[in-house]
Write a protein that binds this DNA or RNA. Structure first.
Lengths: 152, 152
DNA sequence: GTTGAAAGTGTTCGGGG
DNA sequence: CCCCGAACACTTTCAAC
């Protein structure tokens, strides 16, 4: 991972529709080596994939809710079960196991409060929690899928 | 947004490297109308862009921290200033204005605890907070950029 | 909506320095 | 690392149904 790879990755993390020749020009390489570097990063998994990003408002999922969950069943079985449940809900787009007070944190996207209530009921119907609390996002100030490349 | 558009969008949200002909086959359309639908969704902003996704571990930003912030300056000026500060930090990849107890929530990615401490110091140096607390993610159970298409 | 086809562009590699 | 170049695939349109 030299500076060329970092630049290439930074560009592609913001826009992957660019032609390889265009990327090459921006980083100061010719097409062939630039293309080879991209191939390499795809092969070794640095680049996980390329996806289209959709507009939440236009998809009618403008409400983001963070759900903090505490459990009293701290075993692999429960964790595994809950992981599968989370996979079934397309509304759950992020899901972390946490340290500290809260055991799990979810980011959920729905259309509105009513839809969230409906989601909430479905969720607690499927899994058992010691405690669950919801925090509502009023505004998305920043959202990027581009990871910083300067910790290397 | 009929069922064809939903299917197309769902596919592209998971993989946008597919050829239009491939997408068309999967949704049960021929290439031309499928291509037209994609163009339309790009034009009206349903599709915001196409990006490459990178692997956090391999980029050395495997530690996700959620930062909960309270302020005592509830005015547009402070909000605007803080928004600009957040933009300057590539470690801040998500940033929400919240309702309830917490005023703002950040998702921050860094390499390790030491790097987070360094980030933390830089952050509180630039902005003034009434209260700030950090929650650390132990494990990323689920992360997807694909929004659900069934709230339409 | 469909098919088929043409033209332009980018990819994906060879082989050269 | 650079350049050249050729084969191929895909995109992008158009015309006709």
């Amino acid at each position: 991972m030299d500076k060329f790879d970092k630049k290439i990755l930074d560009i592609l993390q913001h826009d992957c529709t660019l032609a390889v020749s265009e990327v090459a020009a921006q980083v100061g390489l010719s097409t062939t080596p630039c293309w080879r570097r991209i191939q390499a990063m795809e092969k070794n998994g640095i680049i996980r994939g390329r996806v289209a990003l959709a507009d939440p408002e236009k998809l009618n999922v403008g409400l983001t809710v963070f759900v903090m969950i505490k459990t009293n069943q701290h075993n692999p079985q429960w964790l595994n079960d809950f992981g599968q449940i989370a996979d079934e809900f397309p509304e759950i787009i992020e899901f972390y196991r946490m340290s500290g007070e809260v055991d799990y944190l979810l980011r959920v996207v729905v259309s509105d409060m009513k839809a969230y209530d409906s989601f909430y009921k479905k969720l607690i119907d499927k899994a058992n929690f010691a405690d669950i609390s919801s925090s509502f996002a009023m505004e998305e100030m920043k959202y990027t899928t581009a990871l910083p490349v300067n910790y290397l």
